[in-house]
Nucleic acid binder design. Structure first.
Lengths: 184, 184
DNA sequence: ATCAAAATGTAGCAGATGCTACAGGTGGGA
DNA sequence: TCCCACCTGTAGCATCTGCTACATTTTGAT
């Protein structure tokens, strides 16, 4: 428990990398430990239990996700709502974000199964995403928070469509909805 | 392999029930077998392997999902696009559909992880959903297929939001998007 | 230097997992 | 009646799971 902060951070970074590459739901202690050069024994010792480990990892991922968004697409206003949508969709489809999409769906799956920690992490990630998106809306957008939430919901649909290889449906939806929102 | 068709169907029905109640990703042979009154030994014998079992079960679920939609909300045209959206959202939130939402996210999670069978099942379910939704659009809707795909993408976002307890965001998005589509 | 607390390695436990070897039924065609 | 293909129960095996007992090293305050 008294694990020094930087080493704890390094472990979480390493485990996050492993989880982004291999999935979250089926992650088990030994591979996670190997990914950061320690043993399952140590993970349990310092995090108390696997549940504690996952809790910490989820928090880490939530923070990392939003930070990753900001790093990938520096803050700035889009020219129009359709532009804003297109930019974010392109960002979500960036190969660098592929791992996040997978982990994101793992989190949703566990949350839908009733896991409170995953649900909380999902809410945190979503809140950060909403805030970030609101800051990218075109200057002067009316009801920015509500618009961000609406776009966000649509974007979640895009992630779902992409996950089963239906990017075409997602593209059509983004095009139509973006246009419709213009004439709101 | 020569399992009689009705018994195979009964097994798949029973396993689907079990999966809707307990999740798909963590389902293992012994509980599945117990749910239909047989043994893991028999499941492997008749389906070849767990992979074969899951394949068959996914196909069964895909069919059952669309059939369930049609049974729950008999075919008919909605009065307007917002009405259509509201009806379907209410249907998706019906407690009877809760199990499907969970299994659906399990499927998406596995599909995002690269599992071909789950991806295929996801596409099948989505295609059936799209067709069913198209048949519920208001009479005279222009570009019905494209509109159905757009609504579908938004609805997937609603499922995601609901899964982490953010029904409010989903409601706001549905309201705004429904209104926007009216002025398309 | 001392000594208690913290940290780590080794080995293993108990349960679950997918799957299999073996031994038997069971039933219908010859 | 015999036989053979199909079906099923019993009992495991090998592996993986989270976690722990035990022994040892390392660390930091005194």
């Amino acid at each position: 428990m008294t694990l020094s902060d930087d080493r704890r951070q390094a472990w979480l970074d390493g485990m996050a990398q492993h989880v982004l590459a291999h999935g979250l739901n089926n992650a088990s202690l030994r591979p996670l430990a190997q990914a950061v050069g320690t043993s399952d024994r140590m993970l349990i010792y310092h995090f108390g239990s696997k549940e504690g480990l996952i809790d910490a990892l989820l928090r880490h991922l939530a923070g990392g996700f939003v930070a990753g968004l900001e790093a990938a697409l520096p803050p700035g206003r889009a020219a129009s709502l359709p532009d804003c949508l297109a930019e974010v969709v392109a960002l979500l489809r960036n190969p660098a974000m592929a791992g996040y999409a997978r982990v994101w769906l793992d989190i949703l799956s566990a949350a839908a199964g009733g896991d409170a920690a995953h649900r909380q992490a999902g809410q945190d990630i979503m809140a950060g995403f909403a805030l970030w998106l609101e800051g990218r809306l075109p200057e002067g957008t009316a009801q920015p928070a509500a618009v961000a939430e609406a776009l966000l919901t649509l974007l979640e649909g895009v992630i779902v469509m992409d996950s089963i290889g239906q990017q075409g449906m997602a593209d059509a939806a983004v095009a139509m909805m973006g246009q419709a929102l213009l004439n709101r």
